[in-house]
Design a protein around this nucleic acid. Sequence first.
DNA 1: CGCTCAATTGATGGACGTCAAGTAGCGTGG
DNA 2: CCACGCTACTTGACGTCCATCAATTGAGCG
Lengths: 251, 251
Amino acid sequence: MSSLEPSPAVPVPVADDGDALHFCSTCAFSAACMAEGYDKSALHSLHCLVEHEGPLAAGTHLFREGDPFQSIAAVRAGTVKTYVVDEEGGEQVHGFFLPGEVIGLSAIHGERYPCNAVALDTVTICRFSFPMLATLATRMPGLQRHLFRLLSQDIGKAALLAGDFSADQRVAAFLVALSRRYAARGFSPTRFNLTMSRGDIASYLRLAPETVSRVFRRMADEGLLHVDRREVEFLEPARMLDLARPVLRGG
Amino acid sequence: MSSLEPSPAVPVPVADDGDALHFCSTCAFSAACMAEGYDKSALHSLHCLVEHEGPLAAGTHLFREGDPFQSIAAVRAGTVKTYVVDEEGGEQVHGFFLPGEVIGLSAIHGERYPCNAVALDTVTICRFSFPMLATLATRMPGLQRHLFRLLSQDIGKAALLAGDFSADQRVAAFLVALSRRYAARGFSPTRFNLTMSRGDIASYLRLAPETVSRVFRRMADEGLLHVDRREVEFLEPARMLDLARPVLRGG
DNA sequence: CGCTCAATTGATGGACGTCAAGTAGCGTGG
DNA sequence: CCACGCTACTTGACGTCCATCAATTGAGCG
């Protein structure tokens, strides 16, 4: 979309251990499970329960709060935002999902999705029927372990933003986390493009949009960051990381 | 310990569907899995990987941050607090675990526990070797599903306190959540005993201890709550719930 | 009885939310 | 191509909630 989106023209998927529910080009899970030497029929089942979907235009909902839960989804391209609407009609952003990340895990324990998921830009995903995935996991310990880890990881992530941190720390942590996630996908860790609005960021960080704006300005004034519209560049990654460290704590 | 702890002398374990990793009297998991008609050898394995532990005195650590992760634990009696220590030496409380609740799920994705766990009063637990549990889950889909649900549930819970709520709302939500958890174990939902200090509550809710104290007083003044030392009683459960609702959102 | 530590209560200040006005992109239509 | 209007964003002024600091009370315990 923008000239900045991926800095290398071709993304370089890194095969990081065990975290392989993310790239659908060869079709998700395969990497995680192949490593364990599974029989062809199992892999075949895996391929069969995947449903590619998209491209979906920005604004399209993947699911809505209350929809019956039956599948989790891995983002292949674009950004997905999850949110809930409180009784006053306000939107509370729960998370952003970049390519390679998995949406819907928090729905497993209920019958229905607990939040809405909407595409922020043009998005393609793979859907996995969760019941089938679980059944398959029974035959593939590697897959089961992988799912356990994904779930467990999200518990930790959710706890991060719960702390009582300053607006600056929150914003820094948000940017550093984005940076790392882009880096893991082979994009530039120091220069990327925010696919979400200031309002979305603010809601996610539990700040006012005005505060996010002011923090960006302050960081720019101090030479920490270059911000222009939705394009950001770290000028001093180390200092940014120092700011974010208390929030991230080894994330 | 206190005259108030359990209001019925004998707790009444409720066999709520699928949520059975909690009562060790017949030994955890059995209920969840029996329902599915498993063979005796599987159940036998389940019993064998359980290690009863305790009673542990208040202040005893179940595990510490950085310890190698190998087991999760279900609380049988007492209260366990999990926390981390930030770089300034401050203690950040992550959660409280009552009888029937499971500790250590967030450790699964790493090699080590990400936090400390300490007994707040006299505690007994069951330890489950997680690798063995996972292996067993492979043969017992009911167990696997149960574990998935436990994990997924925790993701949702962690997100609750992340919202930007007032001190009153947070405290109300904390009390209501405790109330429900006690109720689920057969104790009085309107009158119980806080096993943790004001400081622990404050840290958990990301408030100052002084604020917690003031909120309690305000609630007492308004006739919402009776507080004496660590003993609390809801005087108007409905109003308390109204206060807490925005935070709990269907939890 | 006096020590100690948790809890309470009051006074003050700061960070951030709210309200309100102004600006800049950007698509649309004339 | 420019005017228009919309929306997102920015910037400033002000208010509020809660943290902080400090002093006091009260329980538990030797």
